[in-house]
Design a protein around this nucleic acid. Structure first.
Length: 437
RNA sequence: GGAGGAUUCGCCUAGUGGCCUAGGGCGCACGCUUGGAAAGCGUGUUGGGGGCAACCCCUCAGGGGUUCAAAUCCCCUAUCCUCCGCCA
């Protein structure tokens, strides 16, 4: 959630952000009026409750006296108590009413503030999905025609190599499921080991988190808003399957206060990711580019808000370092305001070249969520000035399926074998090529 | 799945309806003391909301209830521990 103080002091900034996202700016004004009611109700309740407590302070000691009093004083003390008690019941009722008003106003305000998406970073390009800005191209797509190679897509290569079994994935689990077999399975383990080793060198603490979480974790990370239809929910247990390790990693420190000296804290999580892909019927139906489940290695940082911009660049840098090590061509884009998730203030995607599609497609993504998730999850930092929210950021190191697509297609040879980038060889028994089975 | 027990300010703990609307110890911070340190002494030390301010309210795992008044009594839930059963 965003800071209510900002809504109060600079509502136009919040409205502008909502508009840039293509979301409702009117929530801001509903929120302002709810907040005013909330503060009024708070004052009214506080005053009544204070009155009640003062009364209690008078009655308490008298009750003590009554217990110790001799018979001739008892009647007098009792009379004093009765006098104080005479209005107490009525006061108690008024306290309860005021409390319930306050609670109602609190809930209204909280519900409205929860509807607001994060304030977008002024640096983000304005516009919709297609209004991204290309920041950089790295590497050059191979000219397969010049090499005399007819491009095979990853499905075909996966079959030739005995690496991907889509038919049986569909038989057992339905559409958008697959088995990784043989070198496919080995390749996942290699990618994961490579990614986590690299992250370890960069100061990340490896974590294998739970992939099934309670509603609070899902809500806190902002996935139950616009993205709710893409989340798997287990009705019988009121639990959710995570769509990314970002969820359990963000909730890891929920309700905690982290000392400023311990920041930044960098975690690298390896988890399965589950996505319903509602609303993407007919999109990327071939192969394993868009699936209901895949495994992913994700970076996650907790840092001071003032360090978030720099950290975002570092995360992007580490993503690039990883892509570089795979020796594939890619470009970096600055995602436009209308295409940001509700938690992100700014987002950079790395899109790798996919030869069979002859275009760049998203393989990793890094978001600066500023204080948005931290406020929802009550993760704060303590420095010499006290306690305040911190910033959270996340970035993909490797999303297995899309990375396999990228590797297979870019590194394919005329005979259907696939070149193994140098960085992965130590994790694949020194193989230079994956060869047809 | 069944039966017990636990949950209080970072840690330990006092507290069984009103002089506890939360006390003490440890730790930590600052000060005094000292040539310096330790010890000792003193002061401070949960978080949140509201108010121009003085200051007020909430917060004893969470939620309901009883009461003029709840850490304390009742109900529900969560988590942890022990034992039994079941499974790997």
């Amino acid at each position: 959630m965003i800071d209510l103080k900002i809504v109060r002091e600079d509502p136009e900034r919040v409205r502008a952000s909502q508009r840039a996202r293509g979301e409702d700016p009117a929530i801001v004004d509903q929120l302002l009026s709810a907040d005013e009611r909330r503060r009024g109700a708070e004052v009214a309740f506080g005053a009544l409750r204070n009155e009640q407590r003062e009364l209690g302070k008078l009655i308490g000691p008298l009750q003590g006296q009554l217990k110790r009093a001799t018979d001739d004083h008892r009647a007098g003390v009792q009379a004093e108590i009765d006098a104080l008690m005479s209005g107490a019941s009525d006061l108690s009722n008024r306290v309860k009413l005021a409390e319930s008003d306050r609670d109602t106003a609190d809930l209204e305000t909280a519900a409205l503030v929860a509807k607001l998406s994060n304030l977008i970073d002024p640096g983000a390009p304005m516009g919709g999905e297609d209004d991204f800005v290309v920041l950089e191209h790295v590497g050059t797509p191979r000219d397969f025609a010049a090499e005399g190679i007819t491009v095979r897509d990853h499905v075909e290569l996966g079959e030739i190599l005995g690496a991907i079994d889509i038919e049986r994935g569909a038989k057992v689990s339905g559409s958008r499921f697959y088995y990784l077999t043989g070198v496919g399975a080995l390749l996942e383990l290699a990618l994961v080991n490579h990614a986590i080793a690299m992250a370890g060198l960069n100061g990340f603490i490896p974590i294998i988190p739970p992939a099934l979480v309670k509603p609070a974790a899902m809500e806190g990370t902002g996935f139950l808003g616009q993205a709710a239809e893409n989340v798997y929910r287990l009705e019988a247990d009121d639990m959710y399957l995570v769509g990314t390790a970002e969820v359990p990693l963000a909730a890891y420190h929920s309700d905690e206060i982290l000392e400023i000296d311990s920041l930044p804290r960098r975690y690298v999580g390896y988890s399965p990711c589950f996505r319903r892909e509602a609303g993407s019927h007919g999109k990327d139906t071939r192969g394993i580019f868009r699936v209901h489940w895949f495994d992913k290695v994700e970076m996650f940082t907790y840092c001071a808000p003032e360090d978030a911009l720099d950290e975002h660049q570092r995360l992007l840098g580490w993503e690039r370092q990883f892509l570089d090590s795979l020796e594939v061509p890619y470009r970096v884009i600055d995602v436009a305001s209308g295409d940001l998730g509700s938690s992100a203030a700014r987002k950079f995607d790395i899109e790798a070249w996919i030869p069979s599609q002859e275009r760049y497609r998203e393989v990793t993504s890094t978001s600066n969520c500023t204080e948005f998730q931290a406020r929802r999850l009550r993760v704060r930092l303590r420095d010499s000035d006290g306690v305040r929210p911190l910033a959270t950021l996340n970035g993909t190191l490797v999303a297995i399926t899309r990375t396999i697509v990228t590797l297979f297609e870019n590194h394919q040879q005329a005979d259907g074998s696939v070149y193994v980038p140098l960085a992965l060889r130590p994790y694949l028994g020194g193989r230079e090529f994956l060869v047809p089975v």
